[in-house]
């Protein structure tokens, strides 16, 4: 048994495996399949200040080794989360992180401050990278000024671990990472989905209601590993890696590229028990390679 503990800017986790926002609901949806307390942390679905209905159906298109989605941050708003969901989550002995989105820096900050008041939520992940809503999300995540402005406002009103989720749909992701580090982020997570499109050639139209969507799954993994590697060399804060992780070997690529922890997203749709399998697989790999701790392989590839 290697030591799998990780500490991300004060956020202490028993293992480095988290679930990616929007792919694991509130965790409760998967409680028949996995013991939620065994997962490093559960990042619950994107939450906004006000309720959002999301985009029209169809919101999903399957592609080669991946899928596109344009859900559009459907959620019942932060008050519903605090009053109705949070008490339910408190029944589980797990670590829940809330993914926060908004349409203005004030929006983000107000939403974050409401989550700050919840004792049982030790961190938030700021989504400045959703490709599926016009305002908010990616609009902020694609410029250094936009990204920094949101993080600065949130930092004023959020006092626990602040993770910022970065968009891959940029010219230089390391620049954005440096900007959010400078604005007060405690850690960065990457990558959010890659903007893509798929066309139904018989009907001569997009397979998605809003035309474009975010690509996830194994198809994006090499891009994600490369970006994690670039960012890990550019910032001093911890990097959380995600993008197409299906198994422990995939996760170890991310650690070697410089990630301190990882998130599993689309793979949850294929195997609802994948998180635990990846955790066990990382442990086994470390044992087999004579590593006493996960820390020994983080950033192994310079």
């Amino acid at each position: 048994m290697a030591n799998l503990n990780v500490n991300i800017a004060g956020l202490s986790l028993p293992n480095p495996v988290m679930t990616a926002s929007g792919t694991f609901g509130y965790g409760i949806e998967f409680s028949d399949f996995v013991d939620l307390s065994q997962i490093g942390a559960i990042i619950v679905k994107g939450t906004t200040l006000l309720p959002r209905e999301g985009n029209d159906y169809p919101r999903m298109a399957e592609t080669a080794q991946g899928m596109l989605n344009c859900v559009g941050l459907q959620n019942k708003g932060v008050d519903y989360f605090c009053e109705r969901i949070y008490p339910e989550l408190s029944k589980y002995n797990s670590r829940f992180i809330v993914n926060v989105s908004g349409s203005s820096p004030d929006d983000y900050a107000e939403c974050a401050s409401r989550i700050d008041a919840l004792d049982g939520i030790p961190a938030i992940e700021l989504n400045i990278s959703c490709p599926n809503v016009r305002q908010g999300g990616m609009a902020f995540g694609v410029t250094t000024e936009g990204a920094a402005s949101v993080v600065r406002e949130v930092r004023k009103r959020y006092h626990k671990t602040l993770v910022v989720k970065l968009s891959p749909n940029v010219t230089d992701i390391a620049d954005i990472a440096r900007a959010v580090e400078g604005a007060g982020a405690d850690a960065v997570s990457l990558i959010n989905t890659l903007m893509g499109m798929s066309i139904d050639i018989e009907h001569r139209r997009s397979r998605l209601s809003i035309g474009t969507g975010g690509l996830s799954g194994p198809a994006v993994k090499p891009v994600a590993v490369r970006m994690v590697w670039q960012v890990a060399r550019a910032v001093k804060i911890p990097v959380i890696g995600l993008g197409g992780i299906m198994n422990a070997a995939d996760a170890i690529e991310f650690f070697m590229a410089g990630a301190s922890a990882i998130e599993i997203g689309t793979a949850n749709f294929i195997d609802p028990q994948v998180t635990i399998k990846v955790r066990d697989g990382i442990d086994k790999w470390l044992d087999e390679h004579g590593c006493l701790s996960l820390q020994e392989i983080i950033g192994a590839v310079r």
């Binding site: 792919t23 998967f30 679905k45 999301g54 159906y57 999903m60």
Partner: peptide, 17 residues
């Protein structure tokens, strides 16, 4: 039978109005 991804109510892809 809307197109689904997860089947568990997590991904919110198969919604109906």
């Amino acid at each position: 039978e809307n197109l689904m991804a997860c089947g568990l109510g997590a991904c919110l892809c198969c919604v109906e109005k």
